[in-house]
Nucleic acid binder design. Structure first.
Lengths: 192, 192
DNA sequence: TCGATTGTCTAGCAGTGCTAGGGTCGACTC
DNA sequence: GAGTCGACCCTAGCACTGCTAGACAATCGA
C-alpha cells in the first residue's frame, strides 16, 4: 500500500511542478513561450508526461488560473483587512487588484484572457474562482447602496477594474493617470 | 501611366479583399481559424501574396482592427445622435458599445485583445483609433463633472464598458443581469 | 522581337499541440 | 530469489502553424 501512496505523492508533486513551471515560464517570457516541448524540458520529462496529468495545454493554463485565483483572493483580503471604513476598504481592494494584475500579468491572463476551459458563474465553477469573487463581494457589498443587488454591484466594479487592468497593460491606456482613474472609479461607483 | 494606375487599383482592391475576408472568416469561425493558408485559399491566391501586402498575420489583424474602429465610432455616433439630454446620450452610447462588441466579437478582439501591432494613445496612433476615442469623448465629456478631466473620465468609462464586454463574452459574467449592470454603471459614473 | 522586371506559385523550413507504439524498469507472486 | 506482469515513460511521427527562398511565367518598355 505504501508504495502506491508514495507513487501517488510523487505524481502529485510532479503535477505541482508542471503548474509552477508553466506559471514561472509564462511570467518570464509570456504564454507564447510556454510550449509543451519547452515545458517538458524544464521539468526534465518528455512531452507525453504532460498529457498524463492534463488533457492538453488548455488545462495547464486552467490550473495556473486556479492557483492565481487563490492568490488574488488572498492579496485582496490582505489589503482590505487593515483598512478602516468602507471607503478605505474599497480603495485598498481596487489598488490591490490592479497591483496583482500588474505584477502577475501571465497569471492574470490565464484567469481572464486565455481559454483555460474553466466554468465561470455556474454550479460547477471551481471553488477558487467562487472564493475570489467572494473576496471582492465581502468588501464591495458594503458600498452597493440601497436597492442594488450586492452581487450585481460587485460584477460591475470587478468589470471596471478588469477593463482598467487589461487596457493599461495592453498599452491602450497611458500609464500616466492610473491613479486618477482609480480614484475616480472608486469615488463614483461606491455609494459612499 | 494608366496601366500602372490600374495595377495600383487592383492591388488596393485585393488588399481590401484580404482584410474583408479575414474579418469574415474570423467572425464566422474565430481568429484561430484564420490561418494564412485558409485565408489565401479564400481569396484564391497563394499564401505568399498575403506577405506582399502585409508583413505578417499581425498586420492583417491590425487592418481589421482599424476597420472595426471606424465602424465602432460610426455606430456610437449614430446611436447618440437622436438621444435627448446627456443622460440619454450616455445610455445610448453604452448600449451601442456593448452591442457592437456582442455583434462583432472577432473585430472587437482584433481591436482590444489581440496583438495587432497598433500604437494606442500615442502620437503615431492611427486616425481611426483616435477618432473612435473622440466619438466616446464627445458624449462622455459632457458628464465628466466639475474638476474631472474629460479625457480621463472617458478612459474610465471606456475601461468599464470594455470590462463588461469582455467578461460577458468570455462567459465570466452571466448574461442575466446585463441590463442592470449597464444601468448601474451609467447612473453611477456619470455626473448626472 | 527581345531583354528586363514584376508578379505569383511551388516547395520547404522550423516550430506548434498532440498521440501511437515500443521498451524498460520496478513491483508483486510463487 | 526468480519470473511474470503491468505501469510508466520515451522516441518518433502526424497534421498543422507562420513565414520565406527560389523557380517560373507573364507583362512591360525598348
Amino acid at each position: 500500500m505504501s508504495v502506491q501512496e508514495r507513487k501517488q505523492r510523487e505524481r502529485a508533486d510532479r503535477e505541482r511542478l508542471i503548474v509552477a513551471t508553466a506559471r514561472e515560464l509564462a511570467e518570464q517570457q509570456g504564454w507564447d513561450a510556454v510550449t509543451t516541448r519547452r515545458l517538458a524540458e524544464r521539468i526534465e520529462y518528455s512531452q507525453p508526461v504532460l498529457y498524463s496529468h492534463f488533457r492538453g495545454k488548455r488545462e495547464i493554463i486552467g490550473a495556473v488560473a486556479l492557483e492565481g485565483a487563490a492568490d488574488l483572493a488572498a492579496a485582496v483580503r490582505a489589503a482590505v483587512a487593515p483598512a478602516d471604513g468602507p471607503r478605505a476598504r474599497v480603495g485598498a481592494l481596487a489598488g490591490a487588484y490592479l497591483d496583482f494584475a500588474e505584477r502577475n500579468p501571465a497569471v492574470y491572463d490565464a484567469m481572464f484572457q486565455l481559454e483555460g476551459g474553466l466554468a465561470f458563474a455556474q454550479e460547477d465553477t471551481p471553488e477558487q474562482l467562487k472564493d475570489a469573487f467572494a473576496a471582492l463581494l465581502e468588501t464591495l457589498g458594503e458600498v452597493a447602496g440601497d436597492g442594488i443587488h450586492p452581487g450585481v454591484f460587485t460584477e460591475v466594479f470587478w468589470a471596471s477594474l478588469h477593463g482598467l487592468a487589461t487596457l493599461t497593460r495592453a498599452g491602450r491606456l497611458p500609464r500616466e493617470y492610473t491613479e486618477q482613474r482609480l480614484d475616480l472609479l472608486v469615488d463614483r461607483l461606491s455609494s459612499i
